[in-house]
Computed example of a mutant assay.
Amino acid sequence: MSAQKPTVVLVHGAFADSSSWNGVVERLQSHGYPVVAASNPLRGLTRDGEYVRQLLASIEGPVVLVGHSYGGSVISNAASGIDHVKALVFVAAFLPDEGESAVALSGMYPGSTLGETLHPVPVTLADGSQIADLYIEKSRFHQQFAADVSEEIAAIMAATQRPVADAALAEGASAPAWKEIPSWVLVAAEDRNIPARVQAFMAERAKATVVEVPASHAVSVSRPDEVARLIDEAARATG
């Protein structure tokens, strides 16, 4: 049964890891989808996109590529020109046009409170250059990132969050794959990282199929049924 369905590749965003897709993976697998939850490096948009692009090249047959948050920028960079990616699904995610960054887009309309919750940690790279790894302060993670998740689960998410390099959020996107591949967008109406108005603007610009869910930024954790349903819809539409 799995061979008859496209492979779903899930790409997490900043301040998360692949386990943020666990509920979605469970539901997709129960419906016969082969699933890969990629480990996004979160080091830089070009670098992260190339990482996902190489992963896509290793997969035979059609692919539905899904990105959450900053992962939306990554999948749009990665999928351009790859014929076997048949659909893009953006989950509370960025859909940048060429040259646009996550930082610029998130500030397009008011509502994001992410910046005031960030804790930068200086990191020296092998070449001697310095970057800042950005974390959400643990005491503020629940309300900022995952307000509709239990305190217990949010505490685990805060402890296991993956930092993103500051340069990754400021780097401009390359030519976007959403201009050539059919796209679906889940707008998280209660998102405090990417304001819902920004998500809706990007979805309309991309002429995407849109569903809005009353959820926090961590919608893949709090509403896995709705996320899996949209992915299934995209897969069926392109099959």
Rank of each mutant, 00 (worst) to 15 (best):
M1C: 07
A3L: 14
Q4D: 10
T7C: 04
V8N: 00
V8A: 00
H12N: 09
H12I: 01
S18V: 01
V24H: 00
V24C: 01
E26V: 08
H31W: 07
G32P: 09
V36I: 15
A37K: 03
R43I: 09
L45S: 04
A57E: 13
A57H: 14
I59L: 04
I59Y: 02
S73L: 06
N77L: 00
S80C: 01
G81Y: 01
V85I: 07
A87D: 02
L88R: 01
F94R: 06
L95K: 03
P96K: 05
D97R: 14
D97Y: 13
D97V: 06
S101P: 12
A102T: 06
A102F: 13
M108W: 12
Y109M: 15
P110T: 11
S112K: 07
E116C: 03
E116A: 15
E116S: 14
L118Y: 14
H119I: 15
P120N: 10
V123L: 11
G128H: 12
D133N: 14
E137I: 12
K138E: 15
Q143Y: 14
Q144G: 02
D148A: 09
E151D: 14
A155I: 07
I156P: 01
Q161A: 07
A165G: 02
A168Y: 09
A168V: 11
A175V: 13
P176R: 03
E180I: 08
P182G: 02
W184S: 01
A189H: 06
I194A: 05
P195Q: 08
P195E: 06
R197A: 15
V198H: 08
Q199Y: 14
A200S: 14
K207I: 02
K207W: 07
T209M: 05
T209P: 02
A218M: 12
V219E: 01
R229L: 12
L230H: 06
I231F: 04
I231N: 03
I231L: 08
I231C: 03
E233A: 15
E233C: 04
R236Q: 14
R236S: 13
